[in-house]
Design a protein around this nucleic acid. Structure first.
Lengths: 143, 143
DNA sequence: ATGGCTGCAAATAGTTTGCAATGAG
DNA sequence: CTCATTGCAAACTATTTGCAGCCAT
């Protein structure tokens, strides 16, 4: 039970529609990257995306991978995460949410907004308001 | 009402004591960096520390700045923060706490542990436990 | 004395940019 | 046809590392 041609095609078509909806001109490279990333909620680095492209036989330069991811992020199609200085992560889930991160492996998973509730939060300094809240729950193997 | 020689000396002595307490061999460069960073709770980048050293007339190579900060962090004297990919921040407050960050300026300030309370947190995946929680509240000018 | 520090410069990793060639509308 | 997009390589930034000489113990 694999992925058949119809799946690929609808995945492609959906990606194309989303690009068009954001006013992003549709090209082969952008479609390939969109269909890798936007299919399901996931967290990928630029390097992982480049690798997936190579695996699919696509020839996309690293510069184009970065340019495309930055464009997608600027248009709100994806969200860029910084978890440690090593590299940027691109999150296909743009709805507000938080993250778990496995300390050992670095693996990320989503935490739904409703699974975190604050009974107390500090008042922002005068003249400021909260723009967003980033929450990362680091996990270790229980011992 | 400036900083007089006695202040500098006691700051130095305090820094030397803290290094020794962590089993870190005391050297001029380490003392200089420690007395810049450990005097009060603050968040500095490696570049800002290098600049402060130059301003004080100290000659410390950038490599030594990094090596020293990494050593301090490994010994628990300071904590390294990653807020965006641009650079690492070194926090002299090692007690558990959270942060405000001004979106415009990037400026950081501490949020005390007691000013944040969770009434709901997600259960960690099976076999995992929470190692730590990183919380960054991004602020924008109210408008 | 001796082993840990330091400075310098070179290496590294991730990301961005300049520019000529290509492709979409 | 015209301007946006791409690929390549070079540039850049933050950080790390190798190594010869220096310094704390």
């Amino acid at each position: 039970m694999g992925i058949d041609a119809a799946d690929v095609e609808s995945n492609w078509a959906r990606a194309a529609a989303r690009l068009a909806a954001c006013g992003i001109r549709v090209t082969d490279q952008r479609l390939q990257i969109a269909s890798i990333l936007l299919g399901e909620p996931q967290h990928l680095s630029a390097e992982q995306i480049a690798e997936a492209l190579r695996r699919d036989g696509a020839r996309v330069s690293k510069a184009t991978v970065y340019n495309t991811l930055n464009l997608f992020a600027a248009r709100g199609l994806i969200r860029q995460l910084t978890l440690d200085g090593s590299c940027a992560w691109f999150d296909s889930n743009v709805a507000p949410h938080y993250h778990f991160q496995d300390e050992q492996t670095g693996a990320l998973s989503d935490v739904a907004l409703r699974d975190v509730q604050f009974s107390r939060l500090p008042a922002p300094p005068p003249g400021m308001e909260v723009a967003s809240i980033d929450l990362v729950i680091r996990l270790r193997r229980r011992g």
